[in-house]
Design a protein around this nucleic acid. Structure first.
Length: 220
DNA sequence: GCGACAG
DNA sequence: ATCTTGTCGC
């Protein structure tokens, strides 16, 4: 698939802030997605002591979650890891991998936050806006916000609140296991996001999409 | 000013 | 993220 270039990639957080503020205006947190036939998962690894960025994308059929296609892309690493600016480090290479796909995914599950971000523009939002594809943020740990303790049952969740605003949810995908943090990326509401994350999760804490992408991104 | 801080 | 030994449970 072809993706339009929207902006140059900055090399510092200071230069990245204006870009986040501008693109954050384009984020849509209501449901603007059609029938989901293909769900994608993306993940990024940093081999060669971090000097190389390796992005992996897997496309699964939905709801049966069978692997249909995968792609991988590499770039020299140019942006450091700075909390709040993860997308500037990972998205350029992820877009390269997406462009190699034959199948255009109907939904993408990202490894990281969506709007559960200081400026409401986490990596899932950035990828969603640039690719113009519905995205959901699924993070393993918290960047901002807090939530009440949740019940132990699989599928239970509590609102993730930041500055008195609900920005996502802490979701228990497996009984008795630490929750994942789900938030809207682009063109997906929170409730719909929670539903898709549950439907993509089978026997592990993380969605199958993320697990397969992770295997491809970190393995060799 | 002092901590917290996705991957 | 990455590095990296042992340990716990099915």
């Amino acid at each position: 698939m072809k993706i339009n270039q929207r902006h140059d990639w900055p090399l510092t957080a200071e230069e990245a802030i204006p870009i986040q503020q501008q693109l954050a205006k384009e984020v849509i947190t209501s449901d603007e997605l059609g029938t989901v036939q293909y769900v994608a998962g993306v993940d990024v690894g940093f081999p060669e002591s971090g000097s190389i960025t390796r992005a992996a994308v897997v496309v699964l059929s939905f709801p049966d979650l069978q692997l249909k296609e995968q792609a991988i892309a590499y770039r020299p690493t140019t942006f450091p890891y700075v909390p709040g600016f993860l997308s500037f480090r990972e998205v350029p290479t992820v877009l390269d991998a997406l462009e190699k796909l034959t199948i255009i995914p109907d939904l993408i599950l990202c490894d990281g936050q969506g709007i559960a971000h200081p400026r409401r523009f986490g990596i899932a939002c950035h990828l969603g806006v640039l690719a113009d594809i519905p995205t959901i943020g699924v993070a393993k740990s918290l960047l901002v916000g807090k939530h009440e303790e949740l019940p132990l049952e699989r599928g239970t969740w509590k609102p993730l609140v930041h500055r008195r605003e609900t920005i996502g949810a802490a979701l228990r995908t497996r009984m008795g296991v630490k929750p994942v943090y789900v938030s809207s990326g682009h063109r997906v509401s929170l409730l719909t996001a929670i539903d898709y994350v549950m439907r993509c999760t089978t026997k592990y804490k993380l969605p199958e999409t993320t697990r397969l992408a992770d295997k491809l991104a970190s393995n060799r």
